[in-house]
C-alpha cells in the first residue's frame, strides 16, 4: 500500500524543486526537503517511501534539472504514474531508477491521498475505486530499472542494454 499524491497537467520541474533550492544553492543534503515547497507545502515531510505520484499530461516539463528527480528518489517516491511525461524527466526517472509509467486513466480514477498498489506486471494501479490501466515499459527501460538505474546497469554490464 502506498499513498497517492495527485497533481495536474504540465507539472514543471520548477514546482518540484524551485531553482532557488537547487543542491547548488542549498547543499546536497537539503535540497530534497524543498520538494514541492511552493506547489504542495508539507509534501517533503509527509511523503513516505513507496508513495506514488499521479499526474496528467506532460508531467515533469521544463528544466532538465535532474535534481528534481533526485529529490523524489531521496524521499523514496516509489513510482510516478502520469498520462504523459516530458522527455527529459522520463529519462531522468529511468536513469535514477524510479519507474515512470504512463496511464491514460489514473488521473481520473485516483484521488489524492488514496491508498494505491502499483502492479506493473499486471498493468494495473489499484485504488479503492477500481483499477487504472498502466502501460508496460519498453524492455530497454525495464532492464535499467531492474538494475536500479543506468549507473548500476552500466557498472554491472559495461554497456547499454541492447536496443
Amino acid at each position: 500500500m502506498a499513498r497517492a499524491w495527485v497533481f495536474g497537467d504540465d507539472l514543471d520541474t520548477d514546482q518540484m524543486v524551485p531553482g532557488r533550492y537547487a543542491p547548488f544553492m542549498v547543499g546536497q543534503d537539503k535540497f530534497h526537503t524543498y520538494a514541492f515547497c511552493d506547489a504542495r507545502p508539507g509534501f517533503a515531510k509527509e511523503v513516505r517511501p513507496g508513495d506514488i505520484l499521479v499526474g496528467g499530461e506532460n508531467f515533469g516539463c521544463g528544466s532538465s534539472r535532474e535534481y528534481a528527480v533526485a529529490a523524489l528518489k531521496k524521499l523514496g517516491v516509489g513510482a510516478v504514474v502520469a498520462k504523459s511525461f516530458a522527455r527529459i524527466f522520463f529519462r531522468n526517472c529511468i536513469n535514477l531508477g524510479i519507474p515512470a509509467i504512463e496511464s491514460a486513466d489514473a488521473i481520473q480514477i485516483v484521488g489524492d491521498g488514496d491508498d494505491v498498489t502499483l502492479d506493473v506486471a499486471a498493468g494495473a494501479l489499484r485504488t479503492p475505486h477500481g483499477a487504472a490501466t498502466v502501460r508496460p515499459l519498453a524492455s530497454f527501460a525495464q532492464e535499467i530499472l531492474s538494475a536500479g538505474g543506468v549507473i548500476a546497469y552500466l557498472r554491472e554490464n559495461g554497456d547499454f542494454p541492447r536496443v
Partner: peptide, 18 residues
C-alpha cells in the same frame, strides 16, 4: 539534445548515448 546529469555523465564516460 538536453539531458539530465546522469545521462551527461554516461555520455562523458562512453562517448555515446541512447
Amino acid at each position: 539534445a538536453g539531458m539530465g546529469a546522469t545521462d551527461v555523465a554516461v555520455a562523458l564516460a562512453l562517448g555515446r548515448t541512447w
